[in-house]
Amino acid sequence: MPKRTTDELSDLKAFAAVAHAGGFREAARLLQLSPSGLSDAVRRLENHLGVRLLHRTTRSVLPTEQGQQLLERVAPAFAELELALQIVNSARDKPAGNLRLNVPVNATRLFLAPLLTRFLQRFPDISVEVIAETGVIDIVAAGCDAGIRYDDRLEQDMIAMPIGPREQRFATAAAPALLEKTGRPQHPDDLLKMPCIRGRFAKGNLERWSFQRGEEVCHIEPHGPLIYSGGTGADLGVSLAREGVGVIHLFEGWLQPYLDSGELEPILGPWWQPFAGPFLYYSGRKLLPPPLRAFIDFVKAGE
């Protein structure tokens, strides 16, 4: 009985390989087996199930409707089995493989570079792919192992843990020459009379600037000569702000080098509103790949 189960698993793997490769020769090349051996395995599985699983022509091999249904069921199971073997091997050897992260653009600018530098030095057999964008995506559907987002943008079925600075602020600044012309604002409402540089979110809506001093909270929608694409176009906005085109409202860490150099002057400092830092999040529905497990442990340890 156990041998029959083992044979069935081998035949299922052969079928899945042929279906994914679109032919027996390509699947045989990838698996380093003979095309005839794979053909025998698929035929054996079809006889056992009593249904045809593949349409075979001289030009192509495609799953039948029943074959596609079977493929959709067994492919995730084989992926989990492969991952389980990787995890067992990682307990014996160094973690190795690829780690795909989906992150906001500001993370790559503010804290991710030094973190990844230390991580890659610690785990030289792991390679990291970073997909930086402003919009929120389904990381599982996109083939990413994990993502970085803020609390208000996390899906409820995800596991999340803090990463990066635990508190951040949006800073407001302008070139000293501009402030000499317009005067220095004392209240956020004063910005409504000044040229401002705003960002537009991926969904199309313009950023609303928020301020807080004590119990007083103020939200404004300023106007100005430039609108940039949020995240990806922020450097353009900062460059024009440094030239005196308008007031900029952005992550404090992003503006800090220009505040330090004097190219930008901070304004409305007592009104800068703090907010919680970002989170690393990932799906808890499946086994964790060794590179992701290593990254999670690395972040938790604060290395």
Rank of each mutant, 00 (worst) to 15 (best):
D7C: 14
L9Y: 10
L12F: 04
A14C: 12
F15V: 00
A17E: 13
H20Q: 09
G22E: 12
G23F: 06
E26V: 06
A27M: 03
S34A: 10
R43H: 11
R43W: 06
R44P: 03
R44T: 04
L49C: 13
L53Q: 00
T58D: 04
V61I: 13
E65V: 03
E80C: 03
L81V: 04
Q86A: 08
Q86D: 01
V88Q: 06
N89I: 07
S90A: 14
A91L: 09
A91I: 11
A96Q: 00
G97D: 00
L101V: 09
L101S: 04
N102F: 06
P104V: 09
A107F: 00
L110S: 12
A113F: 09
L115A: 14
T117V: 11
V130P: 07
I131Y: 11
E133N: 08
E133Q: 13
D138C: 04
I139N: 11
V140H: 11
V140M: 02
G147E: 05
Y150E: 04
P162D: 02
P165Y: 01
P165E: 00
F170K: 01
F170M: 07
A173N: 07
A174T: 03
A177D: 08
E180C: 00
T182E: 08
Q186K: 09
L192R: 14
F201H: 11
A202I: 00
N205I: 11
N205L: 15
R208E: 15
R208W: 08
C218I: 12
I220M: 09
H223I: 00
G230D: 01
D235W: 00
V238Y: 01
S239F: 02
G244W: 06
G244P: 04
L255W: 05
Q256G: 01
E265F: 14
P266C: 14
P266S: 04
G269K: 12
W271N: 14
F275W: 10
G277S: 10
S283H: 10
S283R: 12
G284I: 08
K286M: 09
L287G: 12
L287V: 14
P291M: 13
L292N: 02
G302I: 10
E303K: 15
